[in-house]
Nucleic acid binder design. Structure first.
Length: 419
RNA sequence: GGAGCGAUCGCCUAGCUGGUCGAGGGCGCCGCACUGGAAAUGCGGUAUACGGGGUCAACUCGUAUCGAGGGUUCGAAUCCCUCUCGCUCCGCCA
């Protein structure tokens, strides 16, 4: 949510922000509704002030004439209030559709072609043979079962078996341990079902309606990412500045309808309706927001370095970054079997955009007025694609796969998965 | 699923025989006094939103806000209705 007062004073900033993001923003309609609401509000307030005075003056025993006048005042006030409530509801609704303008360091561009590679780590692994894509490796190792997944749940679901399931579990545990032990995060294990206001708080609603699974009999959504429950942990709260930054890491399964992705990534363990992800969320003071984004991105990269996986960091251009983000980096890992980059983390700074929606504030110092804090989040990491990269990058000619060093303790010391 | 209780200012709480209640008390916090310094104590201050005025800062005026919405009334935190949320007990279940 963007501040109305700022939009009123500088509408061009938000028009420009939306233009850069290649999105629509109902700026003119907001200005119009706002102007009307303001006019009406002063009228209603004047009438209320009059009623208040008159009612107090005639306290206890209003004369018939006074009574009549007050009754007509009440009618006017009620009518005005009703119309005002409509206008304000409309205004609030419209404000939810104004995108967060990108930070000035965000490059302009239409789509992913304008993203900027800020750094690359490592080299693509070399093989003395033709490396296989992970789904073929997985078949040979017997760790994927897409056919039965489809039988029980449909397309874009996966069943992992044996060492595959174990490897996934190892990745989750290891990533949580690195985040908590080395990067200073506090682990939380949140609910997978959330109320609609949480989805609005993180801006997964109303703009991205249709992305999340909704329950039929209860007004709840299945979380599309841990970002939603974790960010909303402190909704409607005023936090002590001394507590900031608050850093949480959470593992959850994530559920996405992938409605707009028909035909995309249909092969392999890449794009699923349900997948595991470890997510980092930071609540910070506004001043440190963009530094925090670098820190957060660094944490995601660190995991890939430890796994020895070739990866790169992209600064998202304005047209490719999404409605709520202020600035965003994607971290992509190289999958040599498929010969393509896989997005395994998306690290975003939101400014106070989410904090306004979820009403998360902090008190800078005792006695001072509360301010909105800033939120950030980033994957650390999306598990399936990391697993893909591991399989593909660490495969041998005989179809076996070396378990990366850091994960071995989590696999009972297992060094290699063999067919 | 059944029964009951509750929702007030950062936190806890009073008010609920309708006006003097934006709202008392305590805690916390801020300032001052006292002190060598501190504790204790005393005094004062301490909500948010929107709008008007303003050297657009301090500040000041107005209006609203006692879970939400509606009703009764000249006037509602206080009375009535609906809803939401939370808690407790019973049932059920892992």
């Amino acid at each position: 949510m963007i501040p109305l007062a700022e939009l009123r004073d500088h509408p061009e900033r938000f028009r420009e922000g939306a233009r850069r993001k290649r999105e629509e923003a109902p700026v003119d309609e907001i200005l119009e509704v706002d102007a009307g609401a303001r006019r009406l509000r002063s009228e209603v307030e004047a009438a209320q002030a009059e009623r208040r005075r008159a009612s107090a003056a005639s306290r206890g025993a209003p004369s018939p004439e006074q009574r009549e006048r007050l009754n007509s005042l009440r009618a006017r006030i009620q009518e005005g209030e009703a119309r005002l409530a409509e206008l304000e509801a409309r205004l609030q609704e419209l404000l939810l559709y104004v995108p967060n303008p990108p930070h000035e360091s965000v490059p302009d561009g239409d789509d992913e072609r304008s993203n900027v590679t800020v750094r690359t780590w490592g080299e693509p692994p070399r093989f003395g043979f033709e490396p296989l894509p992970h789904h073929e490796l997985g078949d040979r190792l017997g760790i994927f079962d897409f056919e039965r997944a489809a039988k029980i749940s449909g397309a874009r679901f996966a069943v992992l078996r044996g060492e595959g399931a174990r490897l996934q579990r190892a990745l989750i545990s290891w990533m949580l341990d690195v985040a908590t032990r080395e990067h200073g995060y506090t682990e939380v294990l949140p609910p997978y079902l959330v109320r609609p206001e949480c989805m609005v708080g993180t801006a997964n609603l109303p703009d991205k309606e249709g992305m999340a699974y909704q329950l039929r009999d209860d007004d709840l959504y299945l979380v599309p990412t841990a970002e939603v429950p974790v960010t909303n942990l402190y909704r409607e709260e005023i936090l002590d500045a001394a507590r900031l930054p608050i850093c949480h890491v959470a593992y959850t399964a994530c559920f996405r309808r992938e409605a707009g992705a028909a035909g995309k990534d249909t092969r392999g363990y890449v794009r699923l309706h349900q997948f595991d992800k470890v997510e980092m969320v930071r609540f910070v003071v506004p001043e440190s927001s963009l530094d925090e984004l670098e820190t957060l991105t660094g944490h995601a990269e660190h995991l890939l370095r430890r796994l020895g996986l070739h990866h790169r960091v992209l600064l998202m251009c304005s047209g490719d970054m999404g409605f709520a983000q202020w600035k965003k980096y994607d971290v992509e890992v190289w999958a040599p079997g498929m010969r393509r980059w896989l997005e395994v983390s998306s690290c975003s700074a939101f400014g106070d955009f989410q904090a306004r929606r979820a009403n998360i504030r902090y008190r800078p110092a005792p006695g001072e007025r509360p301010r909105f804090l800033h939120t950030l989040n980033g994957s650390g990491l999306a598990v399936p694609r990391v697993l893909d990269a591991i399989l593909e990058a660490r495969q041998r000619e005989d179809g076996s796969v070396d378990v990366p060093e850091p994960l071995r303790p989590y696999m009972g010391g297992l060094e290699r998965i063999t067919p």
